[in-house]
Amino acid sequence: MIPEPLQAVGRSAWEALPTLLAAAPITLGYALAAMLFGLPLALLVALARLSRARPLRWVSGVYVSFMRGTPLLVQIFMLYYGLPAFGISVSPLVGGVLALTLNAAAYLSETMRASILSVPRGQREAALSLGLTPRQTLRLIVLPQAARVALPSLGNTLIGLVKDTSLVSVITVVELLRSAQLVIARTFEPFGPYLAAALIYWAISSALAWVQRRLEVRLSRPG
């Protein structure tokens, strides 16, 4: 016999499930958008940190240090509530994606920098001696190998972004966590909706981890 409190939790979780499932694509969309916009920015930052130009190294280093050294929640508040003080107003959608993108790019840039450095220097020198330009060497020789090395960390970052999207609920974005809160405000039963939201986060993260493992296996095959 299932205790009555557990039955109540199960009922509230089940009743909240349709609403939460409808919000799950929004959560996934925020994570994918931050990853999509964050990767090019991260590559630029990584190249700036590897540049011989000291100002580029300094500016990119400060950016990475600041974004990694401050809470994402504070960054969201600064962009959404702070930018209007400078005459720049952003919607919750733009503010959320922008904060997630800037934060993710800082972490991704360090992954990319380490991956680029992992490519043997001799390969770059050989490519240059064969007549390739530095840009061609980077695009054709270095980045394909660096991408293979970086894949596990990139996958982990995406999974982390899925969970970090819960923070954009503070600027009224109705994603997965915010949807659970709205259900709770209506039913006054917190545990079930939060449990259902946690299970959906878990399911999305597990699916992304499975895709990541499949890609790693495919890329590890010779030829």
Rank of each mutant, 00 (worst) to 15 (best):
I2S: 08
I2D: 12
P3T: 11
P3Q: 11
E4A: 15
E4Q: 14
P5W: 13
P5R: 09
P5F: 13
L6T: 10
A8H: 12
R11G: 07
S12N: 09
W14G: 14
E15S: 11
E15F: 05
A16Y: 01
A16L: 09
L20G: 00
A24F: 01
T27A: 06
L28S: 05
L32P: 03
A34H: 00
A34R: 01
L36G: 13
F37H: 08
G38Q: 00
P40A: 08
L41G: 07
L41I: 15
L43I: 15
L44M: 15
V45L: 13
A46E: 02
A48C: 15
A48R: 03
R49M: 12
L50A: 11
R54N: 10
S60W: 02
G61C: 05
Y63S: 12
V64A: 01
S65K: 05
S65A: 15
R68V: 07
G69D: 09
P71R: 04
P71L: 05
L72K: 04
L73N: 04
V74Y: 14
Q75K: 03
L79N: 01
Y81G: 06
G82I: 08
A85Q: 15
F86L: 15
F86C: 10
G87S: 06
I88Y: 12
S89V: 13
P92D: 07
V94G: 11
G95S: 05
L98Y: 05
L98E: 04
Y107H: 02
L108P: 01
S109N: 09
R113W: 04
R113A: 02
S115M: 12
S115W: 02
S115N: 08
S118G: 13
V119P: 01
R121Q: 15
R121G: 13
G122H: 07
E125P: 06
E125Y: 10
A126P: 00
A127P: 04
L132M: 15
P134V: 06
P134C: 04
R135T: 14
T137F: 04
L138K: 01
L140D: 13
I141L: 10
L143Y: 06
A147G: 06
R148F: 10
L151W: 03
S153L: 12
L154W: 08
L154H: 00
G155H: 07
G155P: 02
G155K: 08
N156E: 09
N156M: 07
L158V: 03
I159M: 12
L161P: 00
D164N: 14
T165M: 02
S166G: 11
S166E: 03
L167T: 03
S169T: 02
V170E: 03
A180L: 01
L182A: 12
R186K: 13
F188S: 12
F188K: 09
E189D: 15
F191Q: 05
G192S: 07
L195T: 06
L195F: 14
L195S: 04
A198M: 02
L199C: 10
A203D: 09
A203V: 13
A207Y: 11
A207F: 15
A207L: 15
L208E: 08
A209E: 15
V211Y: 14
Q212G: 09
R213W: 12
L215Y: 05
V217S: 10
V217L: 15
G223F: 13
G223A: 14
